[in-house]
Design a protein around this nucleic acid. Structure first.
Length: 588
RNA sequence: GGUUCGGUAGCUCAGCUGGAUAGAGCGUCAUCCUUCUAAGAUGAGGGCCAUUGGUUCGAAUCCAAUCCGAAUCACCA
């Protein structure tokens, strides 16, 4: 059992037998003892002192003695400072921990296994992926991995927004300006199509300006611009199944998919199933009828269908237009139902930006009111936008940090830095390429995953992403460093250790908290918890490394103990990083 | 205007289910490679935790108000 859990339970039991008070184990606050005080773990007493009517010293003394008697093989000592009861754990406990832990036992104990869907990435097909999509992709992939570490079955899906006005804009611009040009070897298909999306917008703005110069109101002009009307017409033709339009649509989408595939492969995104909006946008139509029958929805005179969410503190929301077509919301309800039919998951996580918070609140609410089986399992993993120092990125303005460009840049930087350090001169070209990819992507992924997903983050393109300090390469380096030592020392561990220095103990404590960290990251759907943990562990190891020699340890016993600490640290770093989608090299 | 989210060191961020003197990284300055990988370590400096009030033995953390910023409130997706 986890030591902190044990301390909590024992505290609860001890308080009961001492004072006949019931305090639940999870009400007991156990912290790591601050370095300036003596001890390893601290129980905060204030919480119970009041209801016991005794002084903190009295309670601390009683509880300390009781705990020590209850756990003689674990607690060696305790002291009380103000309302804080500090316990020192027996070195034998940690030695036992180090000696018997195998790298495969680092994970949290299995809990009740669930089937969970993670929908992420979900690109539009009118433009290439940018930095914001990278945050989405890395988050989704990492969340899936973290849930797997907890023992769940995960189904990764993606919904491609392959139809609608946005792609029609790229299509119309291509017709107008491309002269039949197609993607070539110097430009990926997604970038090629994205250029026409920008060209569309430039033309639109020029037309609007012209109309305004002719005396039209800005607002009217933005609706009357000929190129916009052409795009709308094209959308209409698409919906009517016009062959020429569908052909162009397929052709351009395929260019985009070819481009996406290259990017996904490079960044490691994968999906068990990909849904296409062109196949799902008609879903949910029968749900509208169902909702009307159940009186969840109501119809207005113009025959449009609505749901009144004002009792829930929200607004009225339309679910079917007066022309009978369904809206985005309805499609999403339909898709949720379809996913449930196909996969029967216990929970469904949508990795979507926080601009859609309202949408997902409404989606879940409507599904619940319709009594859909999937409703309660809907969870919107809302993440903040990635912004530039100048503000939001806008694809139509062309002010985006392109995903492919950034990935390439990171890989190039890692190449330069690696060459400058000259530590892998024995590598083949293939191994070098792999290493540059590992480090470059490691830096990028870590940069995007190390912050709380909920918070928006700022990326400054002027300052390249760091390779020192709180970064992916720092942790990768620490791993490579450990492996380098272990290659020389071997990993034999046959002698029973009998003493433990402070830094060795700290490492053991840090290692022991990994399973709890996995659970915390999973429960909060927050990979940054693991990123921070991995960084702290790596930093601690580096301090330890600078202070104590492994291969030239004071004695054979010490050497073996430290080798084992190295083995466990490397394995833990590897597991934590792999849950972030980051590989750790053996040498760098 | 309604709703929601955010404001912590020069910059980027932890800490937020209340607990000891608020922490990292970057940047700045100063040390440490004839010894296991210096993408490293050690130290210095840097803070009215947006503001004001409240609850509490105790508040960056909870509550209220205010200020600032963002998202959203479409018969767009």
């Amino acid at each position: 059992m986890n030591l902190i859990t044990l301390l909590k339970q024992t505290t609860s039991k001890s308080l009961d037998s001492l004072y006949q008070v019931k305090i639940q184990p999870d009400q007991v606050l156990v912290n790591a003892t601050k370095p300036e005080f003596e001890g390893d773990y601290t129980i905060v007493l204030f919480a119970f002192v009041k209801q016991l009517g005794k002084s903190p010293e009295q309670v601390g003394n009683d509880l300390g003695n009781a705990m020590q008697n209850a756990l003689p093989s674990i607690i060696t000592n305790f002291n009380i400072v103000k309302g804080f009861l500090n316990f020192t754990i027996r070195n034998d406990y940690w030695l036992e921990f180090i000696q018997h832990l195998s790298p495969n036992e680092l994970l949290p104990p299995a809990i009740n296994k669930k089937k969970i869907m993670v929908e992420y990435s979900s690109p539009n097909t009118n433009k290439p992926l940018h930095l914001g999509h990278l945050r989405n992709n890395f988050l989704g992939w990492s969340i899936a991995e973290i849930l797997k570490l907890q023992g769940h079955e995960v189904v990764k899906t993606c919904i491609v927004n392959d139809r609608g006005i946005h792609i029609c804009k790229s299509m119309i611009a291509w017709q107008l300006f491309a002269n039949g040009a197609t993607p070539n070897s110097t430009q990926k298909g997604d970038h090629f199509v994205g250029d026409y999306y920008v060209k569309y917008n430039d033309a639109f703005k020029a037309e609007v300006a012209e109309l305004v110069a002719g005396g039209m109101m800005q607002e009217t002009a933005e609706k009357e611009a000929p190129i916009l009307k052409a795009a709308h017409e094209m959308l209409l033709k698409w919906e009517q199944g016009d062959a020429a339009t569908l052909n162009l649509w397929k052709k351009m989408n395929n260019w985009v998919y070819e481009g996406f595939e290259v990017t996904y492969k490079k960044i490691g995104s994968d999906f068990f199933k990909t849904y296409y909006e062109s196949n799902t946008y008609l879903l949910g139509k029968e749900l509208v009828e169902e909702g009307l029958t159940k009186k969840v929805f109501y119809q207005k005179e113009d025959s449009s269908v609505w749901i009144d969410l004002t009792p829930d503190g929200l607004d009225e929301k339309i679910v079917r237009r007066k022309d009978g077509t369904s809206v985005y919301m309805t499609q999403d309800i339909g898709l949720a139902q379809l996913k449930q039919k196909e996969f029967n998951t216990d929970a469904s996580i949508y990795v979507v930006g926080d601009e859609q918070n309202y949408h997902f609140k409404v989606l879940k609410l409507i599904c619940q009111k319709l009594k859909q089986p999937a409703a309660d399992g809907i969870y919107h993993l809302s993440y903040g936008m990635v912004e530039l120092p100048t503000g939001k990125m806008k694809s139509r303005e062309g002010t985006v940090v392109d995903a492919d460009d950034l990935v390439d840049e990171m890989i190039n930087i890692s190449k330069e830095k690696t060459e400058a350090l000259g530590k892998v001169s024995d590598f083949t070209q293939a191994k070098l390429t792999e290493l540059y990819n590992t480090i470059g992507l490691g830096a990028l992924k870590f940069f995007l995953l190390r912050v709380d997903p909920k918070k928006k983050m700022i990326f400054n393109p002027e300052e390249s992403i760091d390779f020192h300090g709180f970064t992916g390469p720092f942790i990768q380096y620490t791993h490579a460093r450990i492996k380098s030592i272990l290659r020389k020392t071997g990993t034999a561990f046959t002698i029973t250790p009998n003493e433990l220095l402070p830094l060795e103990k700290q490492l053991a404590i840090e290692l022991s908290s990994f399973p709890a960290m996995v659970n915390e990251a999973a429960d909060n759907l927050d990979p940054s918890k693991l990123a921070i943990y991995a960084f702290n562990l790596a930093k601690l190891f580096n301090t330890f490394y600078a202070e104590h020699s492994i291969s030239n340890a004071e004695s054979e016993v010490k050497k073996q103990l430290r080798i084992q600490l190295g083995v466990l640290t490397a394995a833990t770093l590897q597991k934590a990083m792999s849950a972030l989608g980051i590989a750790v090299p053996e040498q760098m």
